[in-house]
Design a protein around this nucleic acid. Structure first.
Lengths: 218, 218
DNA sequence: GGATAATTTGACCGACTGGTAAACATTACA
DNA sequence: TGTAATGTTTACCAGTCGGTCAAATTATCC
């Protein structure tokens, strides 16, 4: 008499933890490529090396699998922004944020694509997270940036669009990886592109936002 | 005795043009939201207000529909980059490019999402276009930018990553629209965000890339 | 107006979809 | 070691998928 679905049990057995881990890992592989609608449980099952009913023993529905994956990944994903420190030096904070985001694009491209797919398709499953925790975090950090501009530590600019532009430029290297590789060609296809990107983005944001003592014509 | 499928006939009738237009319009609606795998012919048929077999009379397969859509949209999509002029003034060329890309993100978000979905999922249907026409165009414009940096007209920087960053920042407002709206909140949800974005991005790129006469302490 | 070609549709197909039921196998624990 | 709980699988279901077919309808042109 099974029935006490994994999700319902109080204590998690070793097998449960292992299998759920295994499933979410496979789910990340699949969902990050095809999005929610385009992914099938069978695909995930095959990647996970388990039978489809076995997946459904641990996660009752495809939605539940997707949700568990989002929940698990979201916290980590926002870590770099959370690390943004009001007390720090603006220049090095921005530089550090860019660097960390770029490292995540390099080391966790699937996670980036998972969210990109989701948001691109209208965020039907994470709307609450966007309007809630994400917005609050961004509001908080935008206030920090604004205080820097007010104090004349960096050039005056819209903090929200600054954050958007850091997100988009860094995640671009994960989400649009195929395009980046195609355009750079065979030569630059190694990991070198991340170093080049880091150099360029630091130049663009850090140098670009520094307060100018002397502005060129117009 | 039909059989001469629309695609095979030499002369296109008025009905053919109208219906194909109608179908591709609906296909853009659907593919841009759900990607290729996540979209169904039935969905497109419903949006187009036609029966499924009727769609398949004009486009033999779902793939053919997708391909026709890509082909039709790609040319227009690259127009702003093509307009990038070597003879022009660097500052106003970059400013104009950003403005045009941002206008496209505002006015043609479905087209942007169509490509975003496709590239995000590994570009299985447009790999050739990326490695061919796109790469060539970018190479050409990168050379232009490099000539500007060499001439000291703008600050020295990697032209490819400059182009990537303009792509990503501008298209972000189409592809991640839901997220942008969620973070900005109800107040800024009007079209005002595009003006704010334009102001910020011009500041970031144009001011940031101008040659400095005087650099602040590193 | 009638013949002929172009267009549209309903019925249908086999493969795949998310998910279930129940039998079977394995583990944990007394 | 026995047994109850946990874990796994085979067989299956109803609905949807991309796509076909032949019949019905409409447009075209003489």
């Amino acid at each position: 008499m099974a029935i006490p679905r994994a999700a319902k049990t109080q204590r998690r057995t070793r097998i449960q933890e292992e299998k759920e881990e295994q499933i979410l890992e496979a789910a990340l592989d699949v969902f990050s490529v095809s999005g929610f609608r385009g992914s099938t449980i069978d695909q995930i099952a095959e990647v996970a090396g388990m039978s489809k009913p076995n997946l459904l023993y641990y996660f009752r529905t495809k939605e539940a699998m997707h949700r568990a994956l989002i929940d698990r990944v979201l916290f980590t994903w926002l870590e770099p922004l959370r690390a943004f420190n009001a007390q720090g030096n603006p220049e090095s904070e921005i530089r550090g944020y860019i660097r960390r985001k770029l490292e995540m694009a390099r080391d966790f491209p699937r996670e980036s694509r998972l969210f990109a797919n989701e948001v691109l398709q209208g965020a039907p499953h994470i709307e609450d997270e966007l309007k809630g925790p994400l917005k609050e975090l961004v509001d908080e950090k935008a206030a920090v940036i604004r205080s820097w501009t007010k104090a004349g530590k960096i050039v005056k600019c819209d903090p929200y669009h600054l954050i958007f532009s850091i997100w988009s430029t860094t995640q671009h290297y994960a989400d649009f990886d195929v395009q980046v590789r195609a355009v750079l060609g065979q030569g630059q296809s190694g990991e070198g592109r991340f170093e080049d990107a880091a150099r360029f983005l630091e130049q663009l944001f850090v140098d670009g936002l520094s307060v100018r003592t002397n502005q060129p014509a117009s």
